[in-house]
Design a protein around this nucleic acid. Structure first.
Lengths: 151, 151
DNA sequence: CTTGACCCTGTAGCCGCTACAGGGTTTTCA
DNA sequence: TGAAAACCCTGTAGCGGCTACAGGGTCAAG
């Protein structure tokens, strides 16, 4: 099968597949005479695995690590388990951050209830105040509020 | 004051300030003879405002919108309020996504409990399965699990 | 023999910075 | 006076994880 069919089967885009090859998540494949990439079912499985992990918001680095375990089946399952635990911690931390964020935003919004002009808008005043929430902790790896950068 | 002091006062980095100027969040300032940017207290206020909003995980686009309200004090506070509401929705949605993610990950981790070798690692098997969680909704704008991209 | 569907490589863009390189200016101190 | 240090400047490239082109080649059907 060629890249288009692989893309359909793994619900991805051809460009993403080529990207994964470029960054070493998918192996370089055989080519046809016309220089088209050729894939088989194992590629479908591997790509589906990757997309599944991405759906679970793992980074490509984490997935790379998982794939190393999958590729070396004699290593202990413990590594996989540990990686997953770490990832769950990241997610948990991110949830907590977002929850406190949400509270702050809601408090802020109430500030507006009274006044009705920007001139004296409580929100803007609050936001101008110097006190700031602590920055989002020693940059771990669970993204911001805005747009997961893929489709 | 010059850029370094502004940076210290607003707890930012000079490079970030120049970046904000470049993308139009901060105005272009006067310069000294030696071509150094010159700032005053209003710049501190504006930059603190921006950093505060960033601390609340707003996008620069949202902040730009807020600044427009702040710059045009006759417009209604309602716009500010609406913007905030939208942002809160983003955050709420992201929290929900992450929570369901976490559940999936925890289920996955239990799969491992029995077997102890990757060869038959339940996690890897599960992850290879074709069923995938739905992608993270029509890309709104609250980032992934990994690393808020600033300090 | 042309159309169209598919494929290729390479590069630039998204966000919000960060981190240089390679220079200039100003202050400080011997 | 002159050197070092501390500050500033512009410009460019990088992060992650793609996406979206431009500008071409290949292949099957009509």
């Amino acid at each position: 099968m060629q890249i288009g069919e692989l893309a359909r089967r793994a619900r991805t885009q051809a460009e993403t597949i080529r990207y994964y090859e470029r960054v070493g998540l998918l192996p370089e494949t055989a080519r046809t005479q016309g220089n088209y990439r050729v894939y088989d079912d194992r590629h479908v499985a591997r790509l589906s695995f990757i997309r599944h992990c991405r759906g679970l918001d793992m980074s490509l680095e984490e997935i790379r690590a998982l794939l190393r375990f999958a590729d070396a089946p004699d290593e202990s399952c413990a590594g996989v388990d540990a990686l997953l635990e770490t990832h769950i911690e990241h997610v948990t931390r991110r949830i907590k951050t977002l929850q406190s964020l949400k509270q702050q935003l809601q408090r802020l919004r109430k500030t507006c209830a009274a006044t009705k002009e920007t001139r004296q808008c409580g929100i803007l005043n609050e936001l101008s105040a110097h006190s700031r929430p602590p920055p989002d902790a020693p940059v771990e790896h669970v993204g911001g509020t805005h747009g997961i950068r893929n489709g």
